[in-house]
Design a binder for these strands. Sequence first.
DNA 1: CTACGATCTAGAGCGAGGTCTAGATCAAGT
DNA 2: ACTTGATCTAGACCTCGCTCTAGATCGTAG
Lengths: 156, 156
Amino acid sequence: MAAIETPAEPLAIGEVAERTGLTVHALRFYEREGLLVGPIQRTAGGRRRYTTLDVDWLQICVKLRESGMPLADLKRFAELVRHGRGNEAERLRLLDAHRQRVDAQIQALEECRSVITWKVGVYAEHLARGEADGLWAPTPEPRTQGLSGGSASDRP
Amino acid sequence: MAAIETPAEPLAIGEVAERTGLTVHALRFYEREGLLVGPIQRTAGGRRRYTTLDVDWLQICVKLRESGMPLADLKRFAELVRHGRGNEAERLRLLDAHRQRVDAQIQALEECRSVITWKVGVYAEHLARGEADGLWAPTPEPRTQGLSGGSASDRP
DNA sequence: CTACGATCTAGAGCGAGGTCTAGATCAAGT
DNA sequence: ACTTGATCTAGACCTCGCTCTAGATCGTAG
């Protein structure tokens, strides 16, 4: 139990692609863009060898990207981590700001969801009753602007 | 109270931009792309006049876009509505499919959120204790791959 | 040795979703 | 009439985030 340093065995780019869900192209792209923390090791022949720590970081990247963090922020974060000790406060700020954005996003999505659900309900009801007129009619009389002959308040 | 047909007074594009949050450019773009249900009325001079129903539809569009519906789907939906009665089942399907995507998205975001929250917690703790080493250290010894001398399991 | 598949680099290309420009026209205030 | 600001059209342009060549090289199985 002396040193747990060795990250199992290093992985080739294809294997990393499989376990992160990124394409090999994206992996190389991320690297070029400086989104990775450390330089990726290479074999004598020049092939990339990813350690499990590299993969861990990539998995975080995937999560952050999924939740809408722009590559620029991801890059900034990677830079902070790469630079090492002393900037943890900034890392914290970055992550926390992102978390707030995620919260806002969840809120917004939930609102959308309820709007949609309500609308689905409206359609379902009309379908069930076999009558589906008066729902967002295609403005049959452009000149008078009279819409579908119904109250125009709740049709969207 | 005979007919509530008249949608108050028609709005100019700038006013619609204000109340939908879209730019005037985007509004014209949406129109060109066929994302609107009816043709927008024009003044004698050729300026667009939006009815409140147009604005309602645009607000729905905004919600659907916010929740990630691609323009292509929005267009399809607009086409269905424009075409009128008889395709309500398809509209329902479209909306419902989208709602499912939104649900999945919320799920994913919540997962991301918890990952981030946990990570924020880790940083906060380290900051509080004034010691911030061993967190995603910048792989100081590329040759041995020894990382920061800590257990490599929970540092991301 | 020979194949064959996985990787390599540099750089071009792409789709989505707008955004902006140019130059003209409209409408309202003074 | 003149000025000012909002709108008009057509079309070029932009950012983001990959994705895909092309042509060479590596490495392993037969």
